[in-house]
Design a binder for these strands. Structure first.
Lengths: 344, 344
DNA sequence: CCGCTTTTCGTAAGCGCTTCCATTCATTTT
DNA sequence: AAAATGAATGGAAGCGCTTACGAAAAGCGG
């Protein structure tokens, strides 16, 4: 239980602590003889020495740690992963980071929280923030001096790196697809529409597509709530309450869609025969849905990978150059949409 | 960008660094006058001081950090969360930890990996390991001197705390339910069956129930693969290949079930009319499946919460007392099972 | 006003590691 | 042969914080 420190190794190998440090870090400016290296390594193995990374960070000013902030879907709701999208994203982030020898410091976030706590405290080398946050909170982070990458946020500020997708274009693509299938009354269902968020862009894309086709965007055709399946069910009920006006819907998240489909089916509305749906994200389980979701596919794995890459690149290069990465989208056709000739 | 340290605060407040430390940690043995406290706090706020937790850990020997090890489902597969169960569990762990002022150091794990790296390195205060691992790897962790809790593992060793569920009983319950519904030929579908893992217990429960009902456990009725929906589909094909012998199945994970259901439906096998299924886990999305999954419900949130609780309790108390926590299970009836009179 | 207890605070010694700089030899160079 | 070079290592000063320990200030009964 006795922690073995670098000094113990030094003593065992009959060298100084600094020498041990040099061989362990293979410091390029220093040169240690083969023989000594071998002796040190033997001591390390014999004693089972593992360096204390806290101490290392303290003196070397970098921690090989990346802070990751993932939103709790809703304040008060503890389920950070009520949206499987986050799970998949985190998965990819973790995997990529680990490949590079980095670990993750994970924290969920409530809106009102002080993000500094996680980041500044532990001396992370960079921060990945996923989702949309009020600007003030982000500003505090800028003073941190470590690279910050925003995933899926439209905050425009050169202090941050960003990675996202063509939200607007994706939504337009989805909506247009529905229009091409003969639908004219198309609902828009999304999570909360907030400043700098993705949903506002997707809403614009939806509107654009409608307008381009000469269709009106009716207020009663837009549904907005939270990003979880509960809201999908709620939206289904609301759809009924509003009189089943639309024959199709563009939904901005697969989770919502799953709830929506369920809610609709429970009311004996058939998908896609009665209501066609194009969804968004293409999470791991969406081909498993019934019907399998026709959805805008985004490469979640790539998103996470790029996020990590951005942080690491920025952490390495000294001068700050703002970078931005937009991933492409594509529509994958499955079973939740069918042709429709509007009666009117 | 200039980091403000405790000394800066001390200077600003006109006191010594130790005094600042005392007020910040409200060290119980020391007593600082109200007035000084106020002065210090003002300086802290004015300078925007945030303590460097690395330094703190270094000198105080505790980090307010919990290491979390989550398995990559399959080696080579990067998707740690191909099973939504892990996402939900992590969610709960993160939330609970945060409530207690702890952060998470997250790492995925490959089988062959050296777990020490994450734990020992960073001086975590405890480790939560979810899933089943080869014993040798765990042994290395024992020397760590921090509490370790194993989630869903049947490794018997007083050095570890464990938290799990009544796997065997749950499986028995599920199988018996199917039998009560008139099924006699029941498949067992699970992820890999390995030593000390949950599936072996569930298999036993399945066997027990069958035996109790005087039914034979046929080798060709058991399917075992990986825990993801891809395997579910595979199992469906295998089911066909083996001649559609069973009228029901007990599946040990909802993700697998989703794949299985999909695969079966694609082959025009109706659920539950042709094949009834009782699943396991009751993940967030399982009521959304089509049909909604009749499944053994486990309280994933509670599991995560207890895991954290166990670590923290153990970290606080000096002497080691092995603790163990088994959570109850219950069957929730939904739509994937129906009555059946065996033809034979 | 004096010893004595309490309260309040500063000094200093680390925690385990990195890293600049100086030092010691063994080689070369001229 | 003396001077210059370079390779190989150790010394020591921190990184930013905690925490004995001890000293000074303050309260108090007599």
């Amino acid at each position: 239980m006795k922690r073995v420190s670098i000094k113990d190794v030094a003593k065992e190998a009959g060298v100084s602590a600094s020498t041990v440090s040099y061989v362990l870090n293979s410091t390029p400016t220093e040169t240690i003889s083969q023989e000594t290296q071998k002796r040190v390594m033997e001591a390390v193995n014999k004693l089972g020495y593992v360096p204390n990374l806290n101490a290392r960070s303290l003196s070397s000013r970098h921690s090989n740690l990346i802070g990751v902030l993932i939103p709790q879907t809703e304040p008060g709701k503890e389920l950070m992963f009520s949206n499987p999208f986050y799970g998949e994203l985190l998965s990819s982030i973790e995997y990529t980071a680990r490949q590079h020898g980095y670990h993750l410091l994970l924290s969920g976030t409530k809106e009102d929280q002080d993000y500094l706590s996680i980041a500044q405290n532990r001396g992370v080398d960079g921060v990945i923030i996923v989702g949309t946050y009020p600007g003030e909170n982000l500003n505090a982070l800028k003073t941190l001096g470590v690279p910050i990458v925003l995933v899926d946020s439209y905050v425009k500020d050169d202090a941050f790196h960003t990675i996202g997708i063509e939200d607007k274009e994706g939504a337009r693509m989805a909506t247009r697809y529905l229009i091409e299938k003969g639908h004219r009354r198309i609902a828009f269902v999304s999570g909360s529409i907030r400043e700098n968020g993705v949903n506002i862009k997707r809403y614009q894309g939806y509107c654009d597509a409608m307008r381009e086709a000469g269709l009106a965007v009716e207020e009663q055709a837009v549904y907005s709530g939270t990003v979880d399946y509960e809201y999908g069910i709620e939206a289904a009920n609301e759809f009924l309450a509003r009189g089943r006006k639309q024959t199709a819907a563009f939904v901005t998240a697969d989770v919502i869609t799953m709830g929506l489909v369920k809610g609709l089916q429970q009311n004996h509305i058939r998908i896609p025969e009665d209501v066609s749906i194009v969804s968004f994200d293409d999470v791991y389980l969406s081909p498993m849905a019934h019907p399998a979701l026709t959805t805008i596919h985004q490469d979640i794995g790539e998103k996470g990978k790029q996020a990590v890459q951005l942080v690491l690149d920025a952490a390495r290069s000294k001068e700050h150059h703002h970078s931005e990465c937009i991933l492409p989208l594509r529509l994958v056709e499955r079973e939740s949409v069918c042709e429709r000739r509007e009666k009117s």
